Structure formats: C-alpha cells, structure tokens
Computed example of a mutant assay.
Amino acid sequence: MKTKPAEKIKTYEAKGFREKFLGEDNPIHLLFKSNSDHFFCLEIEEIMHMQHPVPPSKHSCHTLIFITSGQHTMKLGYQEYTTTDNEIIMVPAGQIFSLDNVNNIHSGYICQFHPDVLIRKYGSRELLNEFDFLKISGSPKIKLAPEDIGAITNILERLKKEYSETAFTDLNIVQSYLITLFFEMNKNAVKTAKSISAAEVITGKFKELIHDQIKTQHQVNYYSSLLNVTPNHLNKCVKTVTGKSAVKWIDDSILLEAKYLLFQTTLSVGEIATQVGFDDQSYFSRFFKKLEGISPIRYRKLIDKS
C-alpha cells in the first residue's frame, strides 16, 4: 500500500519551527507527488495537524481554501480575512500571508497549484486575466450562492480524486477542472462586485507595481510616474481606498518582504538588506526597528524560539 503524501508530513517532527519552512523542508512540499506536479487537493481535515501560527511567508503556488463548516482567519499582506461557512479565500502565488491564530475549521478543502499548471494545453494568460482573485491586487474572498455550492464541491472532489487516487496526476485534467472551478467562482465574485472608481483602479495598479518592484523602488514619485499621475494624486487615491498613504504602503511592503526573508530563508541580515533595496545594513536595521519595534536579528531569534 502506497503512503499518501498527507501521511508523510505527520512524521515530520525533528526540526525546529523555522527550519521546517526553509526550501524543500517546507512540509507543504511533502504533499506534492513530485517537483514537476506542484499540485495537491485535500480535505482540510487531512492536514489539520499542520494548523499553527505562521509568520509572514509566501509560496510560489496559488492556494485555495474553501470552508464548508467552521472558520479560518489569515492575513494577506496587512489585511485580515476571516473565512466562514461556504466561503472561499484565494492566496495568489507570491502573496505574503501570515496566520496569527488558528481557528476552528470543521470541514472544507485546500487546493494548491503552481501558476504553470494553468498555462498548458487549454489555458492562456489572457484567459487567466478574467479571474480577479488570482491577482495580488484582486479581491481574494468569495461568498458562494447556495445554488453554486454543490457544483464547486463536486469539482473539488474530482480534483481530490485525481490527486489522491492516481499514481501520476494528469495535469491536463487538473487544469480543466481548475478553469471550470474559476468560472464558477467568478459567477459569485461578479454578483458581489461593485462599480470600480478611478481611485480604486489606480490603487489596484499601484499594489501590483509595488509587489513587483518593492525590492528596488521605494519612492512614491517613481510609481506615480508609471501610473501617469502626480505623487499627490496617487497618495490621495491610495489613502481614500485603503486608509493608508502610498508612502505607508511602500514602507509596510518593504517590512513584510524583510519579515518573509528573515523567516523563510537563511540569508544574513546584511544580505536581506540588499534584497529589499538598502545599501546600508545599519540603515535597514533602524528602518526595521522603527516599524516593528525590535531589530531584524531579534525578530529572527523570536521565530526560532517559537
């Protein structure tokens, strides 16, 4: 009898908290059948033992969590989302997320897949632009209409079967089911969508830009020039939509990226400073302590002791 990937991680207890999340030691990776698959779909109950607080982290895969009973709270960037019965939350690939506490999930599904799974025989980047919840700036949470719950559950059951009951996952089948799932989700996303203001459009584009370029670009005027608006107008739009200025968004994004690197890599503080666009390690450390209240070294030590 073959050992299911979900069973392998139950024996993974030897290393410290932070070490478990470095590189291929991340227990999530043990759910992939192979490095080329980068896909799994399971009922949440099968991996409940993995539920614990997680500092700012990110993954190269998209993650979909569908709660059928109970609730789950997580932060995407600095925004907290609580997902309850018959709601889906999508964590886009590359989005920094964190779990400050663990909620009571009675049942549901978790599905994780690499973006490349979607760009195969039946997909295209133009098609994927249809799905706002796959974008960093998109709305990640969807409340399902009662009449759509059955269809979405059936698709996730088929994805789970393809993952759990076949020796080799057929990614063409997985891709087809995922695209069907996304269109079902889109119906519900459209139902709750509101008209988008010009400020929201600019803010969404700004979020995408800082996600892509925060490691090298820290100035509001750089982003405003890309968006063909003045720095003052950009600040006004972002503050109106999010409650925070563009400057604050940039600083918080740098801090989140640094936290992720302190937790999920073995880079030195000096190397991390360079990674997030600081030539001076001392200046980076002062910046980090000003926003977080402790030094980068202290932050990493506290995680190691978790």
Rank of each mutant, 00 (worst) to 15 (best):
Y283C: 03
R120M: 11
K75H: 11
T11Y: 11
S285I: 07
L156P: 04
S285P: 10
T84D: 08
I297W: 07
N232P: 04
P53K: 04
K75Y: 12
S225R: 15
F183M: 11
Y163F: 15
F97E: 05
D116R: 12
G16H: 06
I214E: 00
Q71A: 11
H114W: 14
T63Y: 08
I294Y: 13
E46S: 11
E271L: 12
R300S: 08
N104K: 15
G243M: 12
G277T: 05
D100K: 15
N154E: 15
S69E: 14
E126T: 09
D170G: 07
D252A: 13
Y299V: 08
R125G: 12
N235C: 08
V174K: 03
D148P: 00
Q217V: 04
H211G: 00
A145K: 04
A167F: 02
D116W: 06
Q264P: 04
T153C: 05
I210V: 12
L178F: 05
A193T: 06
E19P: 03
E7C: 08
L178N: 03
L234W: 03
G94I: 08
E184F: 07
V174Y: 00
K20G: 03
N188T: 01
S137D: 06
E130S: 13
K305A: 13
I152T: 00
L267P: 01
L127T: 08
I202K: 09
N188Y: 01
V276R: 01
L234E: 00
A189C: 01
K161S: 14
E162C: 10
R300F: 04
H233M: 14
E43K: 15
S124A: 10
Q51D: 04
K10I: 04
F21Q: 10
S197H: 02
K20P: 01
G204W: 03
P56S: 01
F183H: 14
D252E: 14
I196P: 01
L256P: 01
H211R: 02
Q275P: 02
G108D: 03
I105P: 03
D212W: 05
H72M: 14
H233C: 09
T11F: 07
K187H: 03
I44F: 13
